[in-house]
Design a binder for these strands. Structure first.
Length: 544
RNA sequence: GGCCCCGUCGUCUAGAGGCCUAGGACACGGCCCUUUCAAGGCCGCGACACGGGUUCGAAUCCCGUCGGGGUCACCA
C-alpha cells in the first residue's frame, strides 16, 4: 500500500478562516488516518507579491497550531516565493520543447478581447497568437513585458473526483493557453501548485470546489512535465445561514453597514471619524462608497470604537474569532468535520482520536453546508462539560492570552480551577470570563446596574435594601467564611423571616456583583472573601 | 449567460430498491428541576424540491423542470 501524503497550501493574505480550517482538517485527518506512515505537509503560496504578507503567514501558522493541526515539515516549510529559480528552470525547458511561449498582450488588451467575446455571446478562449519579429521588437522597445503561457494540447481532459465519485470532463474546445509566469517573473498559482505538489510527493489533494475547473489545467501541465497525477477531492462550500458564501467579506460588510448607520444617525462627518483613527479620510470615504473595497482587520479594529460597534457583534468567520470568543479548538474542529462529512451511525461528538480513526474520504458529501453557529455553541458546551478542569485551566490561559484586557488575567491557576468548577455548565470560555470577572475588579469599582438595583433593592419601599442590611449583620458575625457556613446562616434567616431564598440571594448578588447574575451565591461569597463581600455590601447600601 | 457541482426536518446529517409509519443531533415549543445565569431531565413540532418514468416495490435508479452553489484573471 502506498503512503498518503496530503498538504494544506494557503496563501498568506490574512487570518485563517473556517473554510480553510476545514480543508486543512480533512487533509490532516486523511494523513493521520493512515497511522505513522501518512504525512501532512504545509506550503505557503505567496506568489502574489502584492497581497502576501509575512504577518499573515505568522498568523496562519499560529491558528493551525492552536487547532492542533500539526504539519510534518515543520523544519522545511515550503515558501513558493523562495523557489523562483526552480520554476524558471522548468519553464525554460518547457519553452525549449515548445510547450510554452512568450505572449505580449497587455491586461487592457486582454480585457478588451474578453469584452468583445462577451458582446458576441461567445466564451473567450486564448490560443497561441502569432507575432511578427517587427511586432516583438516594437513591444520590447515600448518596454512591454511578456508573460509565459502554457501551450495546452487541445484535447478532452478528465479526472476522477473521489468526492463526487465520478469522472469530471472538460471538452476540448474549452482548452486554452493559460499564463504560467507573470510579468513580474513569479509563476502563477497553476504552475507553482503542479510543480510543488509533484516535488513534495503529494498523493491526495483536498481543496475547495472553486478549484474543480483548475484541475484540468493542472493535469495538462502534469502530462507535459511527466508528473504522476494525484488523487483529487473537491470540497463543497461552507455557506452562511442565508446561503451566501461564508468569507472574509462578511466582516467588512458588517462594519461598513454599521459605519453607514452611524453616520446617518449621528450626522458625524467622515473626517471626524477618521480623526479618531490613523486612517486617512480619503481612504475611509473610498471604502464607504465602494462596496468592493475592503479594510483589513487592523483597520476594522480602529474604526469600530469610532462608530460604536462592539467587536462581539462581528460575525465570527476566522478561526481567530472563535478562539477569542471562547471556543475550544476541539469543538470547532468536531463541528467543522461534520460540515460535509459524517462517520455514519448517528455519531456526532468525537474526540480527535476518534475522528482520525473513523475518517474516510468516501464519506465526504458533495453538497454545500450551512454554518450554524448555534450548533457549534452546543458542541462547545458539550466539549466544555467533558473536559477535565486542568484542560480548562489551560484553555482559559489561552483565552486570556488573546483577551488581555480581561480582569481574569490576574487570577492564579488555582483560582481559575475553582471558578471553572464553580461555573460548570458554561457554553463558552467567554461566559466564564463574563460571569466571574467581578471577582477581580476592585471593590470600589463595581458598577451597579440601575435596573437590577431598582428591582432587587429599591422596589416595594426598599424591601431588598432592608434584607441586605439584615444580612450585613448576619454575615459580619459569621463564625467562619465557607460556603456551607454562610448558606446555613442565610437559610436560618430565611426560615425565620419566612422568605424564599430568591428574595435574599438577589439583593446580595446585586451588592456584590452589580448585576443579577453570578455563580452560585454562597460559593461566590466564599471566593470573594469576607472583607471584600462586606466592603461591597456597605458601599452598595451607602449609594442607595 | 456558457460550463461544472449539488438538492432528506429551520440547520447539520443517517439512509447506497423492501429493515422507512424516514433515524439522530442542534434549534424551536411545552412541562419539570432551580437562589440568578447556564447546565440538566421528560414530552412534542418538524423533511425525502416538483413532475414523469423503470420496478411487484423508489428518499434510494433514469429523464425533465425548478431551486441553490461554483467558475469563466498576469488572485490563489
Amino acid at each position: 500500500m502506498s503512503t498518503v501524503v496530503t498538504r494544506f497550501a494557503p496563501s498568506p493574505t490574512g487570518y485563517l478562516h473556517v473554510g480553510g480550517a476545514r480543508t486543512a482538517l480533512f487533509s490532516w485527518l486523511l494523513a493521520r488516518h493512515t497511522g505513522g506512515e501518512g504525512k501532512f505537509l504545509l506550503r505557503i503560496e505567496d506568489t502574489d507579491l502584492a497581497r502576501s504578507t509575512e504577518q499573515a503567514t505568522i498568523q496562519l501558522l499560529e491558528d493551525l497550531r492552536w487547532l492542533g493541526l500539526h504539519w510534518d515539515n515543520a523544519d522545511s516549510l515550503v515558501y513558493q516565493s523562495k523557489r523562483q529559480d526552480i520554476y524558471n528552470e522548468i519553464i525554460k525547458n518547457l519553452i525549449a520543447k515548445n510547450h510554452a511561449y512568450e505572449a505580449w498582450e497587455t491586461q487592457e488588451e486582454l480585457a478588451a478581447l474578453r469584452a468583445q467575446a462577451e458582446k458576441a455571446k461567445r466564451a473567450f478562449i486564448y490560443r497561441r497568437r502569432k507575432y511578427s519579429p517587427e511586432q516583438i521588437a516594437k513591444f520590447q522597445e515600448e518596454g512591454r513585458k511578456s508573460v509565459i503561457r502554457f501551450a495546452t494540447p487541445v484535447k478532452q481532459y478528465s479526472f476522477f473526483d473521489v468526492i463526487a465519485e465520478k469522472e469530471i470532463v472538460q471538452p476540448e474546445e474549452e482548452c486554452q493557453d493559460f499564463v504560467i509566469r507573470k510579468t513580474d517573473g513569479m509563476p502563477t498559482y497553476h504552475f507553482a501548485v503542479v510543480v510543488d505538489d509533484a516535488e513534495m510527493g503529494i498523493t491526495h489533494i483536498l481543496r475547495g470546489q472553486e478549484h474543480t475547473k483548475n484541475t484540468f489545467l493542472h493535469i495538462a501541465l502534469q502530462e507535459a512535465l511527466n508528473y504522476p497525477r494525484p488523487t483529487y477531492a473537491h470540497l463543497s462550500t461552507i455557506q452562511n445561514l442565508d446561503g451566501t458564501k461564508m468569507g472574509k467579506r462578511d466582516r467588512d460588510k458588517k462594519v461598513r453597514e454599521a459605519a453607514h448607520n452611524f453616520i446617518k444617525n449621528t450626522k458625524t462627518s467622515i473626517e471626524a471619524i477618521a480623526s479618531k483613527t490613523t486612517l486617512a479620510a480619503s481612504r475611509l470615504e473610498e471604502w464607504l462608497s465602494n462596496s468592493k473595497s475592503q479594510l483589513d482587520p487592523s483597520e476594522h479594529d480602529q474604526l469600530m470604537p469610532a462608530i460604536g460597534l462592539n467587536p462581539k457583534d462581528l460575525p465570527e468567520i476566522l478561526v481567530h474569532d472563535f478562539r477569542k470568543n471562547g471556543y475550544l479548538p476541539e469543538a470547532l474542529l468536531n463541528f467543522l468535520a461534520l460540515l460535509g462529512w459524517s462517520p455514519g451511525e448517528n455519531k456526532e461528538l468525537m474526540s480527535m482520536d476518534e475522528m482520525v480513526q473513523l475518517f474516510s474520504i468516501e464519506r465526504i458529501s458533495n453538497a454545500n453546508a450551512k454554518f450554524d453557529r448555534t450548533k457549534l455553541l452546543a458542541f462547545n458546551t458539550e466539549k466544555l462539560k467533558a473536559a477535565p478542569t486542568e484542560r480548562l485551566v489551560m484553555a482559559m490561559r489561552d483565552f486570556l492570552s488573546v483577551n488581555e484586557d480581561s480582569p481574569l488575567s490576574r487570577a492564579t491557576d488555582e483560582q481559575l480551577a475553582t471558578l471553572i468548577d464553580m461555573k460548570r455548565g458554561i457554553r463558552t470560555l467567554r461566559e466564564l470570563d463574563d460571569a466571574t470577572r467581578f471577582f477581580f475588579i476592585p471593590d470600589d469599582q463595581i458598577a451597579y446596574d440601575a435596573a437590577a438595583v431598582e428591582k432587587n433593592l429599591k422596589k416595594n419601599n426598599n424591601e431588598g435594601a432592608g434584607v441586605l442590611r439584615d444580612l450585613q449583620t448576619i454575615l459580619t458575625s459569621a463564625p467562619d467564611w465557607t460556603a456551607a457556613t454562610l448558606e446555613h446562616a442565610v437559610q436560618s434567616y430565611c426560615t425565620e423571616k419566612n422568605l424564599g431564598l430568591g428574595k435574599v440571594a438577589q439583593p446580595i448578588r446585586v451588592a456584590v456583583t452589580g448585576s443579577t447574575v453570578s455563580p452560585p451565591i454562597f460559593q461566590s461569597l466564599e471566593f470573594l472573601g469576607r472583607e471584600s463581600t462586606l466592603a461591597r455590601i456597605s458601599r452598595c447600601l451607602s449609594t442607595l
